[in-house]
Design a protein around this nucleic acid. Structure first.
Lengths: 330, 330
DNA sequence: TTGAAAGCGCTAACAG
DNA sequence: CTGTTAGCGCTTTCAA
């Protein structure tokens, strides 16, 4: 709330406000001696340029908008940390918008302000309609998608090749000798899970096996009960790939309580490599996703986009890896 | 990036820009007929007021700053969701700043911008020095602390009575007949953990028992190994209260692997009621903390502070509760 | 190398 | 109820 303005600095340094502005923005265009005088005045008065006024005059806010469906999912909160770190490094401020998966982004408040006070947007969503990606393109504010991509790849994005990751994991399960390999997915629709399912199906079909999709019926909170019911009424698979670590662990717990031994009778692989995987017993084998890096790389890409640098490739794929722990054989 | 300004709207609606501004900010001061004409022009042109210009002219940004040590801790990410929801409701935008526990907030970039472009600040920190709280007071921008409080309670805050919660949990453990009740805390310094420890010590001392503090030596990642070593070299306690669910679960896993049976030989209570507690086996008894609400209530308090409403009580304590699951007897 | 002057798009008295 | 007129604090030509 400092009330000292650029005029005060100019007066104290005995220069015009234009000069003060210059030492702030183009210091090399000011004679060293004058510059020092101005700098001295600035620190003497504790002057801090008013970012809003600067934004108005320069028509650039050095703010970016970050849109996420929620914060309380490890996959997004870690990503936010990545975004925040890099934004900080480049002196950008980040506006956080939590959409709660409300699909129509246009109707959302963010448009109101995004349009007028951010230089770029980072968007993570559980799914993205074609309309929405059209809108992103039309609003011509630089945008980077995190973890998802638009159908025709026109919007810059940073993501993991989930299809390939799921494919490889499924293949591993098949190679371990399992014929009945299930895919555990969530009931609510996540585009990302569809992509993982594709990879699973590819591996299954290549091996000439039958796919078996098990979807959580409802909320995560009930999954313990739901999985218990599953094991009581249906034949247990020999192996399973889950779309998230948490689902993998819940499934495993239910299996173990049903007397199934892991991994000898049931192998399980999770997705993400969260703390859940470390804390389960047996410890979960899982696919490691560089969540933090997705955020960091996306923010870095956005800075380039905002500077209108030429980008070779605007669709960046980050590598995944596997962490073999105790829920898989060998 | 819409380039239509308030002048365009004024021209199309055939009024002055002041009238347009009025229908935006004080619609009741405009004749309904005129108002409709203006509204029509607004939607016809797709006009969106430029928040930056508005901020400059009105000296209010409708932005709040949110400072957190990290996002990737359940206790903070859920809180952020709470903040974001309420901010949204009151039409405030939130600037996210991740400090990574760098203690000196003054040295941080946030001061630069916070001072000039936010109407209020929400701050969560792992600890708060007296200097820092002084600074918060001096900068006279409305501020609310989350989960922590300053030593002399001058800064508005929303928090849980961690001391009492830990006291009650410890007491329960003692009432269950345990004499050797340990307190599991983290090695790095968190003010909050000290407060919990106080509650633990109060219960222990009231019962005439000896306190036993077990601090993690290093990083969470190594705690499995560290706890294993603990059980191999030291006498296991009969019960334990942990400062976080994750620590409780890691400790429990190590105990079980050492052949100790839970809860018959070792009772454990965690803190927070995260998903970890649901996913462990046996399922963790824990202290439920309304994390989301801390954020929501703090944001609501901040809106009042920003409106300079009179607040009865600026230190709001939210209630905790207990969730008895499988790691405690009875 | 520096200063003068014209806005950026909007709000907020003040008149009328 | 509506219009006129000053700015908000800064950037940015354009001259000097």
């Amino acid at each position: 709330m400092s009330k000292v303005t650029i005029y005060d600095v100019a007066r104290v340094a005995d220069v015009s406000l234009a000069t003060v502005s210059r030492v702030l923005n183009n210091p090399e265009k000011v004679k060293p001696k004058t510059r020092e005088r101005v700098l001295a005045a600035i620190s003497e008065l504790g002057y801090r340029p008013n970012a809003i006024a600067r934004g108005l005059a320069s028509r650039r806010s050095t703010n970016v908008g970050l849109i996420v469906p929620t914060c309380s999912r490890a996959s997004v909160s870690e990503m936010i940390d990545g975004v925040a770190d890099i934004a900080d490094k480049y002196r950008y401020s980040v506006f956080l918008n939590v959409t709660h998966s409300e699909n129509d982004i246009a109707s959302n408040i963010w448009q109101n302000m995004i349009a007028s006070q951010v230089d770029g947007v980072l968007m993570m969503a559980d799914n993205l309609s074609e309309e929405e990606s059209d809108r992103l393109l039309n609003d011509n504010v630089p945008t980077v998608l995190l973890s998802i991509k638009d159908t025709d790849g026109r919007v810059p994005a940073v993501l993991i090749d989930y299809e390939q990751a799921a494919y490889e994991a499924t293949k591993k399960l098949i190679e371990n000798g399992n014929k009945d390999v299930a895919f555990l997915t969530s009931s609510s629709y996540f585009e990302m899970n569809d992509i993982k399912e594709k990879g699973y199906r590819r591996a299954i079909s290549e091996a000439g096996l039958e796919p078996r999709i098990l979807a959580l019926y409802g909320k995560f909170e009930n999954s313990a009960r739901d999985f218990k019911h599953f094991f009581e009424t249906e034949k247990a698979p020999q192996a399973a790939l889950a779309v998230r670590d948490s689902i993998a662990v819940m499934f495993m717990n239910a299996a173990i309580e049903h007397g199934i031994s892991v991994p000898s009778e049931l192998e399980i692989i999770g997705f993400q490599n969260t703390k859940y995987a470390l804390m389960s017993r047996p410890q979960l084998s899982t696919i490691n996703i560089p969540t933090y890096d997705i955020g960091a790389v996306a923010m870095r890409l956005l800075t380039k986009l905002m500077k209108e640098e030429d980008i070779e490739d605007t669709q960046i794929h980050l590598p995944h890896s596997f962490v073999w722990r105790e829920t898989t054989k060998k």
